[in-house]
């Protein structure tokens, strides 16, 4: 971990003291430093966002035909689009479950290594490897793992004598979403583990030592001492993981394409489908989905920050 946020805030406040002029610069200098970033950011991030909002109120048809439809896209979306609501509920389930498993699974792994498991320094590096893999790689590998005929999942079940549980994991609506979720968690567990491990090593040793002396059980130690002390890290990771999962696209697109029977359709895959797969060629409706979803994400971030962070707010 670099230097903690508190320190940086302290440094900033400290240097806010009126100095000679090293903190001042002519407008020309500012422009030269900021312009490249601002221009490219404005042109290819802010403008697209605004244009998406504009699109959401229009029907964008082939050959440059643009029709104003007002709230038409939104009313259709909210009132008549059953696939959208299916996608919303799938995304919600995916986000909530994956976030919790990711963060607390990561904590568990970190605790294992923190408890001086053999080869901990090496395992730390090995367990992190899936984080570096692209979704394309992870997706394809897990599609193979779930393959009915020769996949690893069924082979392991078979080997364990649990042949009765062999099934087409991605082919049944009741298992498809959880199967994709497992692949997603597999990729990200190492990430959360590393962050927790860093936080654990930053804990003051005396506190843990004191708990040891009190003959505190490991569970009690975890619940009463470690978790409260890691609160900031946990909150940080929950929010981060939550945002990431609300936008999940790549892995699902590669593994199931949203099927079977829309059981893995997420908002992101649905946006893509409506834009480029359906036979409508209309960019307005999918833009409306993206806009609505963005507003929901923002609302969730606001609520989570308020609920979980209390005093320590998002840093920027």
């Amino acid at each position: 971990m670099s230097i903690s946020g508190r320190l940086s805030r302290f440094a900033r406040r400290n240097s806010a003291r009126p100095e000679i002029d090293a903190r001042r610069a002519g407008i020309g200098i500012l422009v030269v430093f900021l312009a490249p970033a601002l221009l490219i950011y404005a042109g290819f991030t802010i403008y697209p966002v605004l244009r998406t909002f504009y699109n959401a109120f229009h029907a964008i048809k082939p050959h440059g035909v643009v029709e104003f439809v007002g709230l038409g896209n939104f009313t259709a979306l909210l009132l008549a689009d059953s696939i959208f609501w299916k996608a919303v509920s799938n995304t919600a389930i995916f986000t909530i479950v994956a976030t919790i498993v990711d963060v607390f699974g990561g904590l568990l792994l970190a605790l294992c290594l923190f408890a001086r498991a053999p080869l901990a320094p090496l395992l730390r590096v090995v367990w992190f490897t899936p984080v570096l893999m692209s979704y394309v790689v992870v997706g394809i590998v897990w599609v193979w793992i779930y393959d009915y005929d020769w996949g690893l999942a069924n082979a392991v079940l078979h080997w364990l004598g649990l042949g009765a549980y062999e099934q087409s994991w991605l082919g049944h609506p009741s298992t498809a979403l959880s199967s994709v979720l497992v692949a997603h968690v597999w990729k990200w567990l190492g990430f959360n583990m590393i962050v927790f491990l860093a936080a654990l090593h930053a804990l003051p040793a005396e506190v843990l030592g004191a708990a040891e002396l009190d003959n505190c059980g490991w569970l009690a130690k975890l619940v009463y001492i470690i978790i409260p002390m890691l609160r900031a890290t946990i909150v940080n990771l929950l929010v981060l993981s939550f945002i990431g999962k609300m936008m999940v696209f790549d892995l699902i697109w590669i593994m199931t394409g949203g099927g079977p029977l829309w059981s893995t359709e997420t908002v992101s895959t649905y946006v893509y489908k409506r834009a480029f797969e359906w036979n409508t060629f209309d960019l307005g409706y999918p833009s409306a989905i993206a806009v609505l979803w963005f507003i929901i994400i923002l609302a969730f971030i606001a609520i989570m920050t308020r609920l979980l962070r209390q005093r320590d707010r998002l840093e920027f």
Partner: peptide, 11 residues
């Protein structure tokens, strides 16, 4: 906090 889906169609 911008989801890529919000950008992609306009981009």
């Amino acid at each position: 906090v911008l989801p890529p889906q919000l950008l992609i169609l306009a981009l």
